[in-house]
Design a protein around this nucleic acid. Structure first.
Lengths: 206, 206
DNA sequence: TTAACTATATATAAAGT
DNA sequence: TACTTTATATATAGTTA
């Protein structure tokens, strides 16, 4: 994207790092803005320079809002069995005070159309049902959590594999370049046997 | 940046908006990554699609960390406005333990002086709470489902990237083999070709 | 749909001032 | 030190399979 292709690794020269930072930061924020407008999506970008200056873009008024949404997602992913209840409570606590809760709630009780049963029977039922419900809920939550865990695990593995593959490619490229140069040098004097040897060395890195 | 210049305004056609979203989102995240590496800066990007799927990049482990730094800055710059207080409140609310929550509830209940409540009032409360609970559960389930969706999406993307990388490597290998063959032809006249042949066979298993 | 494929627009690295 | 210019690398819009 410039006169020369640059490797993606930390720029050591301080001054050109600064220049690149400035240019690319500007570009990044511009693209974030475009994405949010073109696709009607909420986008937030935060950049800290090494010298701790901050630059940001947010398609909504406040980054905070987006952060909230982000947290909702993350929290949902984070829960692990024992903590579920705690997390749940606190999560919703931040969105609804108890007062609001009580006010906001709509009534949805229906007539219990079971007048044939004795009070004793009903009491018994009343006691049993919540337990059953809890078991069902517990199973459901458990399954979902397991699902999430396993997905995250997969994600991690895939990421690692990806990284490896990238390294492999990088290595191959480098070796290849070296090899090409060597091959050029050698084909003039000795024939292909050298080529093979070189090849062999290279191969170990595949 | 394509066949035609596009105006930066909401893309009305749903399908091409989706396509553009996918392309540009990928681009944005890539650039964010490059910026963070090249310039050794902390960068975070969060993108929400219309349909509330989340995509993010963060140069540090957690977006949360960056958000914290962001908050420090913002608070330092803007004097403590009312908004900040709200932010703070909700931030900490999300970390409230169940114990704290119960205390809060207690306080709220003290106002109407619980002892003075009539049976009717209590029945009303009793009826409302389950509904509130249901809402909470519903939200929870929704979030978890979204979470799973989003993870599946990520998994898919990673898999695709992986596939690409593998193809790349395969291609590289092919080129290499072609080279080997050429080398073989070349050495038909000279010795040391066995070496090469062996090497070639080995190659396929790498 | 989703995936490749160009032709073109953009971003930007290095050079110039 | 920071603009401006240019050559080149990248991103991507529209197209096609």
């Amino acid at each position: 994207m410039g006169r020369k292709k640059v490797e993606i690794k930390r720029i050591e020269d301080k001054s050109s790092r600064q220049v690149t930072f400035s240019k690319r930061r500007k570009g990044l924020l511009k693209k974030a803005k475009e994405l949010s407008i073109l696709c009607d999506a909420d986008v937030a970008v935060v950049v800290f320079s090494n010298r701790d200056r901050i630059y940001d873009f947010s398609s909504t008024n406040s980054l905070t809002e987006i952060v909230h949404r982000y947290h909702s997602h993350v929290e949902a992913e984070k829960e692990s069995s024992a903590e579920v209840l705690d997390t749940e409570h606190s999560k919703y606590a931040s969105f609804m005070t108890v007062g609001q809760l009580l006010q906001t709630v709509g009534r949805q009780l229906e007539e219990p159309a079971v007048d044939d049963l004795s009070v004793t029977d009903l009491v018994h039922l009343e006691n049993q049902l919540p337990t059953a419900l809890m078991q069902v809920r517990s199973s459901k939550t458990h399954l979902m959590i397991e699902s999430i865990k396993s997905l995250r695990e997969k994600e991690k593995l895939l990421s690692e594999e990806n990284k490896h593959l990238e390294n492999k490619i990088a290595t191959t490229k480098n070796k290849r370049e070296v090899k090409n140069e060597m091959a050029l040098d050698f084909t003039n004097l000795a024939p292909a046997s050298m080529n093979c040897q070189q090849q062999k060395t290279t191969l170990n890195f595949l």
